[in-house]
Simulated scan of single mutants.
Amino acid sequence: MFFKKMTETEIVNSKKGQELGFLSFAILLLINIIYYWFKEVELFSNFVILFAGLVIAFGYEFILNRMDRSRNKR
């Protein structure tokens, strides 16, 4: 009702964005843990890690969808 159906390419792009977002969460958390282990102070706040992962995931998906649309218009 409120949402349109995703095409196959949009589904693939969404999965790619989710994978990159998960990897960015994992890498940022690993960096934060290692830094905390040596300095006993957190490098990133939880808020920064959360929004960095979300921006990376949705941004990558958005970029991939735009690239596919521009290819299809040609």
Rank of each mutant, 00 (worst) to 15 (best):
M1A: 11
M1F: 14
F2I: 09
F2D: 10
F2S: 09
F3L: 13
K4S: 11
K4E: 12
K5T: 11
K5R: 13
K5D: 08
M6D: 10
M6F: 14
M6Y: 11
T7D: 12
E8P: 05
E8R: 13
T9G: 03
T9K: 10
E10L: 00
I11V: 15
I11M: 13
I11E: 11
V12Q: 07
N13D: 10
N13C: 05
S14K: 15
K16N: 14
G17H: 02
Q18T: 12
E19R: 14
E19P: 02
E19W: 13
E19F: 15
L20T: 11
L20A: 12
L20Q: 07
G21K: 01
G21P: 03
G21Y: 02
F22R: 11
F22Y: 10
F22N: 12
F22D: 09
S24Q: 04
S24V: 15
S24K: 05
S24D: 04
F25H: 10
F25I: 13
A26S: 09
A26Q: 09
A26Y: 07
A26T: 08
A26V: 10
I27Q: 06
L28T: 06
L28F: 09
L29N: 13
L29K: 08
L29M: 13
L30N: 04
L30M: 08
I31M: 08
I31A: 05
I31P: 01
I31E: 04
N32T: 02
N32K: 01
N32G: 02
I33T: 11
I33R: 09
I33K: 10
I33Y: 09
I34L: 11
Y35F: 14
Y35L: 02
Y36P: 00
Y36T: 05
W37K: 08
W37V: 07
F38K: 07
F38Q: 07
E40T: 15
V41E: 15
L43I: 06
S45K: 04
S45N: 07
N46W: 14
N46F: 14
F47M: 06
F47A: 05
F47K: 06
V48K: 06
V48A: 10
V48T: 14
I49P: 01
F51R: 05
A52V: 09
A52N: 04
A52I: 07
G53N: 02
L54H: 03
L54W: 06
I56D: 02
I56L: 14
I56W: 01
F58Q: 05
F58C: 03
G59P: 00
G59D: 03
G59I: 03
Y60C: 04
F62V: 08
F62L: 15
F62E: 08
F62D: 06
I63S: 05
I63W: 03
L64W: 01
L64F: 05
L64I: 04
N65E: 08
N65P: 01
N65R: 06
R66E: 10
R66M: 15
R66P: 00
M67F: 08
M67I: 14
M67P: 00
R69Q: 12
S70W: 11
S70A: 14
R71P: 00
R71V: 08
R71A: 09
N72D: 13
K73R: 12
K73Q: 08
